[in-house]
Design a protein around this nucleic acid. Sequence first.
RNA 1: CCGGGUGUGGCCCAGUUGGUAGGGCGCCUGGUUUGGGACCAGGAUGCCGCGAGUUCGAGUCUCGCCACUCGGACCA
Length: 561
Amino acid sequence: MRLSDSFFYTFREDVKDEETLSGNLLVKSSMIKKIGNGIYMYMPLGLKVLKKIENIIREEMNNTGANELLMPNLLPEDVYISSGRRDNFGSSMFSLKDRYDRSLVLGPTHEEFFVEAAKMKVKSYKDLPFNIYQIGNKYRDEPRPRFGLIRVREFFMKDAYSFDTDANSLDKSYRKMFEAYKKIFDRIGIDYRIVKADTGVMGGLLSEEFQAVTDIGEDVLVLCDCNYASNIEVSECVINKEKVEKHKERKLVHTPNAKSIEEISKFLKKDKIKFVKTLIYKIDEVFYACLVSGDREINETKLRKLVNGTKIELASFEEVEKITNAKIGFAGPIDLGIKIIIDNDILYKYNYIVGANKTDYHYINVNTSDFIYDYVGDIKNVKEFDICPKCGKKLYFKNGIEIGNTFKLGTKYSKALGLNYLDEKNTLKPVAMGCYGIGLGRIMASVVEQNNDDNGIIWPINIAPFEVCIVLIDKNDDLQKSIANALYNNLINNKIDVILDDRDLRPGVKFNDMDLIGIPYRITIGKKVKDNLVELKIRKTSQCFDVHVNDIVTKINELIK
RNA sequence: CCGGGUGUGGCCCAGUUGGUAGGGCGCCUGGUUUGGGACCAGGAUGCCGCGAGUUCGAGUCUCGCCACUCGGACCA
C-alpha cells in the first residue's frame, strides 16, 4: 500500500469520548471510529489487524479439523424460547418485529442454531464427533458499553461447537480446542492467563477463560505461583477458623447512626473481622439474609449457585427496611423471619456483632447457636493474600479481559432441543456438546493496552497492519524515490506486508505517524542512499541500524522469522 | 436503571453581566523549507446537540428531550 493514495489519517490530539488508552490510540491512528455507544466502524487499517487475527484463528481452527460455516444474525425469537434462554438473556437481547409483527432477535450467541445445523447430519454415533464454527457478529444490548472495543454492543467473534457421543469423547474434543486456543493466543502475541470460570448463562459442566492481563480488565484473576488460576467469581475460599472462644452473654447495644461496617467498627472500636454483616438478597423473587464476616465481600455467583437460583439482586432499601423493621444498616439474623444463608466461616466465629433489626442497635456476643440458618456455604470473595486452596501459599490478583472461553456444555442443549443419535445398541442418546468463543475486537484492544508507548501502538508482528513501513524522506529526490520504489516492490515479491509512506510531508510527520500506527519495522530512505545505505529502526526497542541496500530484504526476512 | 460531567468548523477547546461566534491543530492557494509533528502571507469551513419559552435581541437565561462520557448497578 502506498500512503499517498490511500484512505489514511491520524489525529494529533486525544479524542474526548475515548477514555481508555487503547480506545484513544485506535481512534487516533485511524483503526476504528465510534459511531454510537458501543458501536464502531473498522477503518482500513483496523480491518487489516482484525483480518490478521481472524486468519490466525481460522488457520488453527482448521488445523483441528473444524469446519467453518456462517450463521445469520437475524433470528426467530421462538428458538430461544424453546431452549429456555429467552428469559436468561432478558433485555440484553436486541429484539425487533418484522412487518407481520413476528418477533425476531439479533443473535447474542448461536448454540441453538448450531444445534439446528448439527441435526442435519447427526443420526448415528458414526456421524460423531465433529466441530463446526463461524466467525461473525454478535449483538448484546449491554447496560453500559465502555472501554473502547472492550465492551461493545456489536462485536466480532469466533464461536465453535463440538459434538460428541459421550463425556469421554467430549473431553478429547474439549482438549483439542483448548490446545488450539493456546496456539492462537501465542501466535497473536498477547499476554494471557487461563482461569477457571463460571458457566453462567451458558450452563454446562466446566468453563475456562482465556484472560488478557491488563489494568483496565473488568475481571479479577486469582493467581498463585503453584499455577492455580481462577476467576474470582468461582475462586474457592479456604475455611478460616478463628480461635475457639467460650460463648459470652448476648447483649443489645445502642449504636446510633452506625449503619455500615466501617462506621460501626469505628464506633465500637473493634476490628471488622469481629462483625458479621447481613445482606438481604432477592433470588428468583425470594428474599434471603446472607451473612459474611465483616471484612469480606459477598460473591453473588457463588450465592446464586448455592440456592440453585438464576436471577439475583440486592434487595432495595425499601424492601430491607420492611423486612428488618428498621432503617437500612441494622439487619441481623436474629428473629428476622426470612431464610438465612451463612458463609461457612461463620461456623467458626465466636462472640461476633450483628445488626439487631432495630434502628440504631446491634447485638454483641452473638454465636451461631443464637439463630437458625437454612444454608451454609462458601458465599464470599477470595481476598488478596488469602491461602491458595491448592498449595497453601498466598494468592495474588491481576485484572483481566476475557478474550476467549471454552465450555463443556454436556447435554443441556441437545436435550432441550432434541439433538440425539442412535448408539451401537440402537438406543437414542443426547449428543454431548462443547462451545468455544474468542472475541476478536477484545484481542485488538487488549493487545494495544499491553503494547504501547508515548508515541503510540507497538503491534506484535503477527497482527500488525503492516510488517514493514518504508519512509521516503524526499519524494523529489530521484535516487531516493527509485530506491524506495524498488525496495517496496522487492518486499512485496518476498511476501512481506509493506506500506510505503511516499506522502509529500516533512519527515517528522511521517515518523510520528508510523510510530503511532505501530508498524514493527521501519526502513528510512534518505540522504545515505548515496552511499547505498538505508536505516532500519525497530519500533519496540527504538534500535537503529544502517543497512546496505542490497542486504535489507534479507535482514527483514530474518527479523520477521 | 441511579448519580456526576460534557455537547460550539474535520480534531481539541475558549466564549465575560444576554449585544456582529473565536483560537490552536488540520484543510486550500502562493512562497521559503525538508532526518522527529517547519515558517511567512492569504483563504475556506458553524442549525453553538434538538425543541419550546423569556427577551427588542439567546451559544449564554428557563423548561423539556436527545446524544456522548465517567462512577455505580448490570454483564456467556
